[in-house]
Simulated scan of single mutants.
Amino acid sequence: MTQKTENTQSGYWFSKIPSKNWSEKFFLYWSLVWITVFSLIVATEAYKVFYDVEFFILGLFVSLPCVVIPYFFPCAADKDKPLWDRYWVKANVWIALFGFVGNYFWTHYFFVLLGATYKFPVDFRLNEVPVFLYFVTHAYFISYHSATTPILRRYWTAFGGKKSTLKTIGSVVIVFAMAYFTAFMEAWTMEKVPYYSIQDRERMYTIGSAFYMIYFIISFPMYARIDETGPQKNEKWSLSRTAIDSLASAMIVFCLCDFWRLIIGSIINPTNSIPFLGTHGIKA
C-alpha cells in the first residue's frame, strides 16, 4: 500500500501541500503569541490607558506578523515561488477581504439587531467601526480558520475521499458546532472589556451567537478549499480566484444576515423586526 493511499484512508490534519502545511502551522503558532498578549492586556486592564495610537499599534501587532514573518522568513517550499503563488499570501487576501466586509457592513447588524455597540475611546473610525478592529479581526479570523481547517480536513480525509450522505451530514454538524462555539466564545471572552456595550448579555450569548455563527458556517468550509479544490486535485488557486471566492462567501453571509433581519429581527425587541438602516440610532 502506498503512502498516498494510507494518508487517504487514515485521514490527516494538516495539508499535504508543503506551502499550506507550513502556513497553517505558522498561523497557529502565532495565534498562541497574540492571544497570550491580548489576554494579559485584558487581565491587567492595561487597555484602560489606550487611545488611538495605542489601540492602532495593538491592531498592527496582532495582524502584521501574519504577513511580515512569512515574507521575510519563507519556508523552503516558498523560496523559489513568486509571492502570488504562496499559500500564506492567498490566505491573508481571503481573510482580509472577508474581514473588511464583515467590519464595514455586518457590524451594523450587531448595532441594530443585537444591541451591541463599541465605545472605544478612539476617533479613528471607518463607518463607525474603530479602524484598529479591522486589524484585530484579521488576526482573529486567521486564527479561527487555521484552527478549524485541520479539523475539517481530518474528518473529510477519514472517509478516504469517498462521498456519502453520512459524510455530508457529519460535515454540516461539525461546521455548525465549530461556528457556534467560535461565536459564543468570542462574545463571552469580551465580557470583561467595558468598551463592548451589550444591552442584553444573555440574549447576546445565546441568540446573538447564533447570528454571529452565520459568518463561520459559510467561511469555515469555503476557506478550507484554498489550493485544494478545482478541476484537478490540489490545483493551485490564483489570487483573483482567491479574492472572488472570499467576496462570494461574503455575499452569501450578507444575504443570510439580511434574511435574519427580515424573518427574526432584533433580539432586543424580538416582537418587532427593526429595519437595517446603517447607523440608524447608533452612536458608539
Results as ranks from 00 to 15, higher is better:
243 A>D: 15
238 S>H: 03
55 F>W: 11
89 V>N: 01
139 A>W: 00
146 S>N: 09
61 F>I: 14
122 V>C: 10
93 V>L: 03
81 K>P: 05
31 S>L: 10
116 A>M: 14
139 A>I: 08
127 N>Y: 07
171 S>W: 01
104 Y>L: 05
136 V>L: 00
19 S>T: 14
104 Y>D: 10
82 P>L: 14
196 Y>T: 03
141 F>V: 13
184 F>G: 03
248 A>Q: 12
34 W>N: 10
25 K>M: 04
26 F>E: 05
70 P>M: 01
235 E>T: 15
54 E>I: 09
158 A>Y: 15
16 K>Y: 02
182 T>D: 12
217 I>S: 09
60 L>D: 02
177 A>V: 00
87 Y>V: 04
225 R>H: 05
236 K>G: 11
275 P>L: 13
164 S>W: 01
53 V>I: 13
150 P>H: 07
29 Y>R: 12
213 M>G: 05
9 Q>V: 14
230 G>H: 11
281 G>E: 00
100 F>D: 03
65 P>L: 04
128 E>W: 04
264 I>M: 05
123 D>T: 12
210 A>P: 07
55 F>A: 13
172 V>H: 12
41 I>H: 00
190 M>D: 11
82 P>N: 09
95 I>V: 15
21 N>I: 13
22 W>L: 06
5 T>A: 14
35 I>D: 05
149 T>D: 05
159 F>V: 02
138 H>K: 08
48 K>I: 02
75 C>Q: 13
13 W>L: 06
89 V>I: 11
79 K>L: 04
261 R>A: 06
31 S>G: 15
229 T>R: 08
96 A>E: 04
200 D>Q: 15
148 T>P: 13
220 F>E: 12
182 T>M: 09
26 F>I: 01
109 Y>H: 08
199 Q>G: 11
218 I>W: 10
250 A>R: 04
34 W>V: 04
259 F>I: 14
262 L>F: 03
134 Y>I: 09
189 T>K: 03
281 G>D: 03
144 Y>H: 11
206 T>Y: 00
53 V>S: 01
257 C>H: 09
67 V>S: 11
84 W>L: 15
69 I>G: 12
278 G>H: 09
126 L>M: 07
70 P>S: 01
161 G>W: 00
238 S>E: 04
212 Y>A: 11
172 V>I: 02
160 G>K: 06
40 L>P: 14
133 L>G: 08
176 F>D: 00
126 L>E: 06
111 F>T: 03
